[in-house]
């Protein structure tokens, strides 16, 4: 079955009203990292009707990702950007997806992220997270940045929260539970954190600045 752009838009407007639909369709969001957090964030935002998604990752889908990331067995070996672009197209063929297969660093962050209004940090390495956050706050202090820290293990789901640190920076997670051999990542808890990040982005798009 195929659907037209008008049908998709009508369905979105019917669900959340024309004004909100317009805000969602014109939103520009970057998702940095397409692992357990990013693949779930991009999926949620695409389903919600966000019109412009910029997905960034350097890695390929691996068998060890399937336990929590939004990829299928048949996508193992593909670049995550290609696999996710394919998945997003299946959800909403009219979502404009820009995919960059690149490892973000201090030098290229300003170049790759200049066009996005909301930036979501969904990396896995603690130093890479800090580097992205430091660089964005320094180069683009007025962009909204939604980062994540602490979602590993089987701790309570209720410990995952969204905190507004400053006017531009939000942090989701439990702030302490690091991934380790004794505290691996579980789909449910990573998805909770991803949902917090995606939901905060939707709230910002609709004019709500508080968590």
């Amino acid at each position: 079955m195929t659907v037209s752009k008008e049908q998709m838009l009508d369905s979105l407007s019917l669900r959340c009203g024309k004004e909100t639909a317009h805000k969602l369709v014109s939103a520009r969001i970057a998702v940095c990292g397409l692992g357990g957090l990013g693949s779930n964030i991009a999926t949620a935002l695409c389903r919600a009707g966000v019109g412009n998604l910029h997905i960034i990752d350097f890695d390929k889908v691996d068998i060890s990702n399937i336990n929590r990331q939004q990829y299928s067995i048949s996508q193992i070996g593909m670049y995550k950007t290609d696999a996710m672009a394919m998945n997003l197209y299946e959800i909403s063929p009219f979502c404009h997806v820009r995919a960059d297969t690149v490892r973000l660093d201090e030098i290229n962050i300003p170049k790759f992220l200049s066009d996005d209004d909301i930036i979501i940090e969904a990396l896995d390495d603690a130093s890479a997270k800090a580097l992205l956050v430091n660089t964005i706050l320094e180069k683009f202090p007025f962009k909204k940045l939604i980062a994540a820290s602490g979602m590993a293990g089987l701790g309570s789901a209720n410990d995952i929260i969204t905190r507004r640190v400053t006017s531009s920076l939000y942090i989701c997670g439990d702030a302490k539970n690091e991934v380790s051999p004794s505290s691996p990542l579980y789909a449910s808890r990573v998805m909770l954190c991803a949902a917090h990040q995606a939901h905060m982005a939707l709230r910002i798009i609709c004019g709500e600045t508080q968590p």
């Binding site: 997270k129 979602m151 400053t166 990542l185």
Partner: peptide, 9 residues
């Protein structure tokens, strides 16, 4: 505000 990141994502 000192934000400290832990690994996982």
């Amino acid at each position: 505000e000192i934000v400290s990141f832990v690994g996982g994502g």
